[in-house]
């Protein structure tokens, strides 16, 4: 794993990371091979007195080979990407908690449905810039925007989704580690874009129950 990659605390983050690393190794090998060949050719075929360049217009076998080889690699990558992509984006698995996110210039409103589990009822609760969720539970997010496009980005979850005004986009994650993490906005949304920052609190089951109790005590 590259040292710069933030730690991963989501169930599907590992798959993204291994795909990333696979591409990393493929591209590194290609990079070294191509740049190596380049430098080697520059050295080996530098102009020298008495030697003439080879007169060649190309080679069809080679053309075919280097058309097919990258095609195969890329098709394989596409196929590998497919499964992970579908898992993350195509369908939301059965979920334990649902939170509605309203992005606005320049804050995140996290709306919790309350004990009745339904939105737009009296016991809804809006907490600005704080997303509190239980660990090891599937959390569904219903994302909307009040003004312009924002993008909910949780680096440790490998989660990113634009929020669009005028339409609801659903997403999900399952955090595997308790702690407090940052939720920046990743899509330019105006002069306050930088610093539009929420926090994700992943709590143990017990702490989560306590938190719910505190929030909806009366």
């Amino acid at each position: 794993m590259l040292p710069w990659l933030p730690e991963n605390i989501s169930t599907y983050g590992g798959e993204i990371d291994s795909l990333f690393m696979l591409i990393f190794w493929i591209t590194t090998i290609v990079f070294v091979a191509v740049q190596g060949a380049l430098i080697w050719f520059l050295f080996k075929y530098r102009a020298q007195p008495g030697r003439r360049a080879t007169y060649s217009h190309g080679n069809n076998t080679l053309e075919i080979a280097w058309t097919i080889a990258p095609s195969i690699i890329l098709v394989v990558l596409a196929l590998l990407s497919r499964a992970t992509w579908d898992e993350i984006k195509a369908e939301i698995p059965p979920h334990d908690v649902t939170v509605r996110v309203y992005a606005k210039q320049f804050n995140w409103d996290f709306i919790y449905p309350g004990p009745d589990g339904a939105f737009d009822t009296a016991d809804d609760k809006t907490i600005e810039n704080e997303l509190t969720v239980p660990v090891n539970k599937v959390v569904k997010l219903e994302m909307l925007s009040r003004d312009v496009i924002h993008s909910l980005f949780v680096p440790v979850l490998r989660f990113k989704q634009d929020t669009m005004p005028g339409r609801q986009i659903d997403g999900w994650f399952e955090a595997t580690k308790t702690g407090e993490y940052e939720i920046p906005c990743a899509e330019l949304c105006g002069f306050g874009h930088s610093g539009m920052l929420g926090h994700l609190k992943v709590l143990s089951d017990q702490d989560y129950a306590t938190w719910v109790g505190e929030q909806w005590s009366n």
Binding site: R46, W66, L74
Partner: peptide, 25 residues
């Protein structure tokens, strides 16, 4: 992914052009 292929082809052909050349810098 498909459109990356022609770019790769071009790169290899540039290397092929250098191969066997009499290169000045």
């Amino acid at each position: 992914m498909v459109i990356a292929v022609p770019s790769a082809i071009k790169t290899f052909n540039w290397l092929g052009t250098l191969w066997g050349g009499s290169i000045t810098f």
